[in-house]
Design a protein around this nucleic acid. Structure first.
Length: 448
RNA sequence: GUGGGCGUAGUUCAGCUGGUUAGAGCGCCAGAUUGUGGAUCUGGAGGUCGUGGGUUCGAGCCCCACCUCCCACCCCA
């Protein structure tokens, strides 16, 4: 029989799990340091919760789950599939952690204390075509604060990004923009309804170049004068502060734009004070696809690795409004654990000796010596030392080889001699040295 | 949804313009070596050549379809 797993999904071997947990542990630690609390939500959500939150493209990428039972009962299959789908699929796999979180907040508002900070490390699913750094099932590590509009929250997100990647030893650039500035630009050129088209096109600037962006804008229905009106935006120069003051002038009388510039000024002012180690830059071409962002938006790129963004986020002013709880603003970020894994692999930044299942292996000398080995092993385990007894009375060579291959640092011999003397012979597998000790001495040695 | 590439032993790969019995390294098993490992040597097992059709006297190799994985576009973590 031939077996396999669905496209875009993966099994994780113990060695990979050790490295993955290193990433999760690092992120979790930072989240805890910033006083976030963990929650979990189900893999399945009602499709009505998910649909329409991620834009047209997002709806297409949602995994929909067929109803149980006779899903065909009373459904008119002659209609367009767009109409049929919601009738036969009432549930779907979550696409991200932010929208389910908004649902969670609305549903449990009576049990939460605002401003509420939660973190969540769980898989999400997208029916995307897999390729490098892109999976159909992958883990997001989200931290969100909801119920506060303070830009201090945005600052803390930057600090958390800085802390995580500093601990992981990865150099990154945090790109920051603000949807209000993008809205201001759209308004500035007299095309406020074309905000999405403008952002999508501008987002490609460093990829396809200015001329192609102009062409794309034309395709998306902007006229030449509107496109020309964007020139001052492309012409901005200098550091964040300089660009922002130029923008402020450009946005005179433009309410949204001005608000966006003010927010960015405040945020960059805070960032200047905390002096993060990572690079932080204002990137006016940063758009981010997710529809629900309304304020600050973030994206993190690793240096020297060509993979998409490894972390992203932003502020959403009214995500809970869709679920009947208006005027609650939130802001959060999402670390892409799987891409971070790929980055650490490519940069060779994983610590050595991550996966050591056992600290000690007892060589199996057969039935006569087993009772002594079992009781010694029990005592080591009681002392918190991960211990293994080789299950079969196999050849020494095979048992030693097993220890090597599993990277077990200490091998313990308990045969006739040891039993008679009530001792253990411990071999240090890396140094090749060995000594005969009492149980207490072995515990002390292995705990070191 | 669109375009490109790959698929041969457990694994990494070789396999000539189509030719008779499909190879190698690593791994695995046994032995040299029944209380001391990573080395070496000897022997052995292991293949529906992704699947199905076609061309041919003859297909791992050529043609078609499908599947898989990978890469790129779109979009995104």
């Amino acid at each position: 029989m031939k077996c396999s797993i669905p496209k875009g999904t993966r099994d994780f071997l113990p060695a990979e799990m050790a490295r993955r947990n290193y990433i999760f542990d690092t992120i979790r630690e930072v989240f805890k340091t910033f006083a976030f609390e963990p929650i979990e939500t189900p893999s399945l959500e009602n499709l009505s919760t998910l649909m329409g939150k991620y834009g047209e493209e997002g709806d297409k990428l949602l995994f929909k789950v067929l109803n149980s039972g006779d899903f065909m009962d009373g459904v008119d299959f002659s209609q367009d599939y767009h109409k049929v789908a919601p009738r036969i699929c009432e549930r779907g796999l979550r696409y991200d952690l932010t929208v389910p979180f908004a649902r969670f907040v609305v549903q449990h508002r009576d049990q939460l204390t605002f401003p509420f900070r939660r973190y969540q490390l769980q898989p999400v699913w997208r029916a995307d075509r897999p390729q490098k750094g892109r999976y159909r099932e992958f883990y997001q590590c989200d931290a969100d604060m909801i119920g506060s509009t303070s830009l201090l929250n945005e600052l803390e997100l930057v600090q958390m990004i800085d802390a995580v990647f500093q601990r992981l030893g990865v150099e990154v650039t945090v790109k920051i923009n603000n949807r209000k500035v993008l809205a201001g630009i759209a308004e500035h050129i007299g095309a406020p309804d074309k905000l999405v088209d403008i952002t999508v096109a501008i987002d490609k600037l460093d990829k396809i170049g200015l001329d192609n962006v102009r062409a794309e804008l034309r395709e998306r229905g902007l006229d030449d004068s509107q496109i020309a009106a964007l020139d001052p935006v492309f012409a901005l120069t200098g550091d964040a502060a300089a660009k922002l003051s130029q923008l402020a002038t450009l946005f005179a009388g433009n309410e949204v734009g001005t608000k966006g510039v003010e927010e960015l000024k405040e945020l960059f002012g805070y960032i200047e004070q905390v002096k993060p180690q990572c690079h932080v830059e204002l990137d006016l071409t940063l758009a981010r696809g997710l529809n629900y962002y309304t304020g600050a938006i973030f994206e993190v790129k690793a240096h020297n690795v060509s993979i998409g963004s490894i972390c992203g986020g932003g502020r959403y002013d009214n995500l809970t409004g869709i679920f009947g709880m208006p005027d609650v603003s939130g802001v959060g970020i999402s670390f892409g654990a799987d891409r971070i894994y790929d980055v650490l692999t490519e940069l060779d930044k994983f610590p050595a000796n991550l996966g050591q299942p056992a600290r000690a292996l007892f060589i199996n000398f057969g039935a006569e010596s087993l009772p002594y080995a079992i009781s010694c092993a029990a005592k080591l385990r009681a002392s918190g030392i991960s211990t293994l007894i080789y299950p079969d009375n196999a050849k020494m060579r095979k048992q030693m080889d097993y220890a090597n291959r599993c990277h077990v640092p200490f091998v313990i011999f308990v045969g006739e001699n040891e039993i008679a003397a009530q001792t253990l012979t411990v071999k240090d597998m890396t140094a090749g040295t060995q000594s005969t000790l009492t149980l207490d001495e072995v515990v002390a040695l292995l705990k070191a």
